[in-house]
């Protein structure tokens, strides 16, 4: 996604990336990054939590409009309301993704 953001930005449209992996966005030179410490699959937060969705989207829009230079990163201070162990288990698909299955086969 940082690559897609960069391509859109290079075409003249400002971008902001809302991501669970802001370090990766930094590495790949995303122009503006909003980091969220949420389990994968949930960039705007918990299902049913309109307040959380709004905090994330408003922060993203504010960063989009207000960042002064490329590589601007803001990390959002929202704690995920589910214990980390449970959240780690539940974000994952029921069956391993093809790439994970491939690596598991390689290791076996």
């Amino acid at each position: 996604m940082p690559v897609l953001a960069r391509r859109i930005e290079a075409a003249g449209i400002p971008t902001v990336l809302v991501t669970m992996m802001p370090d990766l966005a930094d590495h790949l030179l995303a122009p503006r990054t909003l980091g969220v410490q949420f389990p994968y699959g949930h960039p705007f937060g918990m299902p049913g939590d309109a307040g959380m969705h709004r905090r994330v989207l408003e922060a993203a829009a504010t960063l989009l409009a207000g960042a002064a230079k490329p590589g601007t990163r803001v990390d959002l201070d929202i704690e995920w309301p589910v214990p980390a162990k449970e959240a780690y288990r539940t974000w994952q698909p029921e069956e391993p993704s093809p790439i994970v299955a491939y690596f598991l086969r390689q290791r076996a």
């Binding site: 994968y40 699959g41 949930h42 960039p43 705007f44 937060g45 918990m46 299902p47 049913g48 309109a50 969705h53 709004r54 994330v56 989207l57 408003e58 829009a61 539940t90 974000w91 994952q92 698909p93 029921e94 993704s97 093809p98 790439i99």
Partner: peptide, 26 residues
């Protein structure tokens, strides 16, 4: 269509990934 994450929460509430109603509120 995404084999890398559990889709249940996005399907239950699209705002989790595509917050169109949240954008309406802003």
């Amino acid at each position: 269509s995404h084999l890398h994450v559990n889709p249940a929460d996005v399907l239950a509430d699209h705002e989790v990934a595509l917050p169109v109603r949240t954008l309406d509120a802003l």
